[in-house]
Every structure is written in structure tokens, then in C-alpha cells.
């Protein structure tokens, strides 16, 4: 489904193809930078991928790889010093949403795109009752207060909050962390969005709750039929939940494909390093957990060529040349010039 989009022409043939419906989210060569005191920080560079309708796409990457910037760019909520410097974001059949006015962008949020954020403790307003907050996000509907509350109760019941009528009158501090996250999921899905962005929704939860929350999310996603962009640094969760995945490093997509393709045949050295570092995949006792040596490059002066070369065990002088993406198998793309010789 995904394609290498070196040129606009190739992209056009994709969308005009009668057999492939437009994806729920299509990001094309997106670049975002921030003006900082130390110079322009290029947080995202040439990010291209799409989330097909009704499927779950996972994004993995370490802290600082641009996951949050990507979410904020999609939501149109970049900080004041941030700017989309190139590329396009399309939502379903719509035109490029980076060109929308703030007002038009706001009309999409909560209706077409919903978000569940990482920190369930801080995601709800502490001084307003849960019912009031759930009612407020339905402000665009013409329902009466009572009808809105009935919708909220129904949603809370769907995410298996016991005694939802009573819960509506309570405040966030009266809910446990897992319950708050389920309330957040209920709120995000209430308007039946086309796209749900889940920003590490289970990171702050303990392991048993994590599994339950993921199962709930999957179940609701199938019922509503929305596409999900699921951000996580937990590879096990991605493997469990997602259909497709994207590996990001320093603001670039280094590898993308189906979960099966990437886990079976990780083709970018960074992906392989990331998989090697996953404690769940260790088979014997080790004294020190494996890490990737080195640190993220300075995003104000991005390296020429491959962005991972400084930390890559396989780097050679050619890695300083501009990188082209390599298709490993159909739909599985790695942004590394040595892809084929390494995986072969």
C-alpha cells in the first residue's frame, strides 16, 4: 500500500487508482521546523506514510524522534515557533490540511481526528466533572443536555466503566489511572472519528492495565471502523495491536511496512538495533541491557546523507551521500543504501 514517493507523479497514480480507496491519513514529504535561539531545528524531514482506512498503524522510535511533533502537525497544534516547511497532510478525500486556517483546522479536531494522550492523570481537567467535559466536546451537536449526557453514559458503558451515570458527576481525581485512560478513549471515540491518534496511551499504565486497554482499543476500533495511528516505544504493544508500522529516527521515517514484514525482516540498521534492545526479546540473562551507542544527531545541523550513520555499526563513506529508499519486498521500505546487501 505504501509507496516510495520520489516524485509527485508516482503519488498521483496511487490516488487515482480505482481499486485503492484513499487512505484515512496520507502524509507526503512532510517537513516541520522550529525556530529556536540556537537556529532552525528541523524536527521532521520528508516524512511520508499513510494510514489505510480501518487499519492500525504503529509508530516506534526513541524519545526525541519527532513522534510528538508529527502528532501536533497532524492536529494543527504546533507550538508558535513551529512551522510546516514542506509537504502535505491529507485526511481521507480532503485536500492538504496544512493549508487550512486555524478555524477550519479546529473544525476537524474532535470530529474527524481524535486523540488519546499519554498521561491519563493530566489529560482531563481537574476542576470540571467528567460529565461536563464529555458534554463540552459534543458542543457541535444539536442534542439537548440530557441527550448529550445519555451519549456520554453510553460511551462510558462501552469502555466498561461501572455505574456510568454516577461517574459522570465525579471529578477526574476520583478515577484511577486506568479508568481515566478509558474515559479518554470514550471521549476520543464519541464522535466516531475517521482517525484516532493514540499517543502512547498505555505508557503510564501498569502491565495488566496495558493489556486490557489495548484490547479495549482494538475492540472499539473494529466496531467504529476508524483508522488508528498508534504511537509507542513498546515494541511488544506494536506487534500485538498494529497492522502496519513505521520506524522513526531523528525526524525521519527510516523503515515502514507491515508489522509482520518488519519484525520478520528488519531491514534498517536502526530497526534492528531497536529490536535488539527490546528486553522482551532477550533469551538469556545479561548483565547490562543492550543499548544503541551514541546519541541523536543535532537536529539543527542534520548530517548529510543517512541520519543514523553516526551510530550505525555498518556505516561506510557512501552513507554520507543522499539516501534513497529501498523497497525490500512490496510495501516494505527501508531508508538505507545497504538494505539489500545487508538483508540478503
Amino acid at each position: 500500500m505504501s509507496s516510495i514517493r520520489g516524485s509527485r507523479g508516482a503519488e498521483m497514480t496511487m490516488t487515482t487508482d480505482q481499486n485503492t480507496p484513499a487512505p484515512a491519513l496520507d502524509i507526503d514529504a512532510l517537513s516541520v521546523s522550529f525556530a529556536t535561539d540556537g537556529g532552525t531545528l528541523h524536527a521532521l524531514k520528508d516524512v511520508s506514510f499513510s494510514v489505510p482506512k480501518g487499519r492500525i498503524t504503529g509508530i516506534v522510535g526513541e524519545s526525541g524522534c519527532g513522534k510528538s511533533t508529527l502528532i501536533n502537525a497532524i492536529l494543527g497544534l504546533l507550538a508558535d515557533n513551529g512551522e510546516v516547511t514542506g509537504g502535505a497532510i491529507r485526511l481521507g478525500e480532503s485536500a492538504d490540511i496544512t493549508k487550512l486556517t486555524p478555524r477550519q483546522m479546529r473544525d476537524l479536531r474532535g470530529l474527524q481526528i481524535s486523540t488519546v494522550f499519554q498521561d491519563p492523570m493530566g489529560a482531563l481537567n481537574p476542576v470540571l466533572s467528567v460529565g461536563k467535559q464529555m458534554r463540552d466536546i459534543q458542543y457541535r451537536s444539536n442534542l439537548s443536555k440530557r441527550e448529550k449526557d445519555a451519549r456520554s453514559v453510553e460511551m462510558l458503558r462501552q469502555v466498561r466503566i461501572p455505574d456510568p451515570e454516577k461517574r459522570l458527576t465525579q471529578y477526574p481525581h476520583e478515577f484511577s489511572g486506568g479508568m481515566k485512560q478509558r474515559v479518554a478513549i470514550a471521549m476520543a471515540l464519541m464522535m466516531r472519528p475517521q482517525l484516532l491518534i493514540a499517543d502512547e496511551p498505555t505508557t503510564a499504565l501498569d502491565a495488566t492495565l496495558e493489556v486490557a486497554t489495548i484490547e479495549l482499543l482494538k475492540e472499539l476500533q473494529q466496531e467504529i471502523g476508524c483508522a488508528v495511528l498508534f504511537i509507542s516505544h513498546h515494541l511488544g504493544v506494536i506487534a500485538e495491536l498494529c497492522d502496519d508500522m513505521i520506524v522513526m529516527y531523528a525526524g525521519e521515517v527510516v523503515e515502514q511496512g507491515s508489522v509482520r514484514q518488519i519484525f520478520r525482516n528488519p531491514s534498517h540498521p536502526y530497526t534492528r538495533a531497536l529490536l535488539d534492545c527490546d528486553p522482551a526479546r532477550l533469551h538469556e540473562r545479561v548483565k547490562h541491557l543492550p543499548t544503541i551507542p551514541g546519541t541523536l544527531p543535532d537536529l539543527r545541523n542534520r548530517p548529510k546523507g543517512c541520519v543514523f550513520q553516526a551510530r550505525c555499526a555498518l556505516a561506510k563513506p557512501e552513507c554520507g551521500q543522499p539516501v534513497t529508499s529501498v523497497e525490500v519486498t512490496p510495501g516494505h521500505i527501508a531508508r538505507c543504501i545497504r538494505t539489500n546487501e545487508v538483508t540478503a
Binding site: 492536529l75 497544534l77 479536531r109 474532535g110 481524535s114 494522550f117 481537567n125 481537574p126 476542576v127 458542543y139
Partner: peptide
């Protein structure tokens, strides 16, 4: 700066509403 304000924005609540009903209360 709080997360719940980000949530309110992500749900498309009008900015004025967020400031006077959600943020000012705190």
C-alpha cells in the same frame, strides 16, 4: 501548558472557551 488544555484543544473546543472555562477556573 497543562495536558488537559492540550486535550481540550485536540477536541476542537474554541480557544476562548478553553481560556475562560477550562484554564481560568484553575
Amino acid at each position: 501548558e497543562a495536558g488537559h488544555i492540550r486535550t481540550a484543544r485536540a477536541f476542537g473546543l474554541p480557544e476562548r472557551w478553553i481560556i475562560y472555562n477550562y484554564a481560568l477556573r484553575i
